[in-house]
């Protein structure tokens, strides 16, 4: 979505009623964020909405980007937010070989997740239970981490359910929404 560098469009203040709506929606999609919601989206603070190319809207608090949304698609967290609260999202892990493709904006393919270095929910090799136990449906928002790295490298929408992925082990797994080093990442909100 953000392969090219881009310039932010108009910035406008979000109405407080809309802000409540956003807050509710964020909590609905990411219930695990609940303990921290007051830190992320303080009730009293004024949110800003920045328009980006391709009908993407980005919600920011001051100059920190928080969430972005393409039209009425699910609301997705910005990677800086993911880095701050990594445990609050559904996570998958890719193997080392796939990192460089992800960082250049490719659609994530299933083998990157099913190979020994990758992790899917309910994985036998996942001892700590970091990656959850419930299978994820196609269309859910996931954070992609990488083998041997602590921080996440991508936020995307699943193209394929994780159960199917384990069976088929082929094809597109996750659409690249926002990845490290893309236009949204490099966006200057001054």
């Amino acid at each position: 979505m953000f392969k090219k560098d881009m310039t932010p469009g108009s910035k406008s203040k979000v109405k407080s009623s809309a802000q409540r709506g956003i807050r509710a929606k964020v909590l609905e999609s990411y219930p695990l964020l609940e303990p921290y919601i007051e830190e992320i989206l303080p009730k009293k603070e004024q949110l800003d909405l920045v328009k980006l190319p391709d009908r993407v809207s980005l919600y920011t608090l001051g100059s920190t980007p928080l969430f972005f949304q393409h039209m009425d698609d699910p609301i997705m967290p910005h990677l800086t937010l993911v880095h701050k609260y990594p445990d609050a999202f559904n996570r998958l892990r890719i193997d080392r070989g796939a990192i460089r493709f992800v960082l250049s904006g490719a659609t994530l393919m299933a083998p990157g997740l099913t190979s020994p270095g990758g992790r899917l929910p309910d994985d036998d090799e996942d001892e700590e239970g970091r990656y959850g136990e419930d299978e994820l449906e196609a269309g859910s928002v996931v954070v992609i981490e990488a083998e041997g790295k602590d921080t996440a490298c991508m936020v995307g929408v699943l193209r394929m359910g994780t159960e199917e992925m384990k069976k088929v082990k082929k094809g597109q797994a996750c659409e690249a929404g926002h990845y490290l080093g893309d236009g949204l990442w490099g966006l200057n909100l001054g």
Partner: peptide, 18 residues
């Protein structure tokens, strides 16, 4: 423990791991 502080590289802005 939250929010986690992540260091970002001053040259390429990514987390240093990347």
């Amino acid at each position: 423990e939250y929010p986690k502080q992540v260091i970002y590289c001053g040259v390429c802005t990514l987390p240093p791991e990347y």
